[in-house]
């Protein structure tokens, strides 16, 4: 993994934590908050995963070329 997928993955972790806070902490309960921030967490998790997979494939392809 490069800094790219690590940083995007870090973002998804922050969003997951906040979505959980909005979902499970009654003081933060606001309609739709957990859904919006949770779907955001899913978006950034997917972006981090896609980036990491692309990097891994490219590294393997680079090794084969050598």
């Amino acid at each position: 993994m490069t800094e790219d997928s690590v940083l995007i993955g870090l973002v998804s972790l922050v969003w997951i934590a906040l979505a959980a806070l909005y979902a499970f902490e009654p003081m933060f309960a606001m309609p739709g908050s957990a859904i919006v921030w949770g779907s955001g967490a899913a978006v950034f998790l997917a972006l981090a995963a896609i980036t990491a997979i692309a990097e891994r494939r490219l590294r393997q392809a680079g090794k084969r070329d050598r």
Partner: peptide, 24 residues
């Protein structure tokens, strides 16, 4: 190009926030 330039990374971060805003 295995590691994005700063602008390449920023573009992906920007696109991610557009996606989230679309869902919102």
């Amino acid at each position: 190009q295995r590691v994005w330039s700063t602008i390449g990374f920023a573009v992906v971060a920007w696109a991610g926030l557009v996606m989230v805003s679309s869902l919102a």
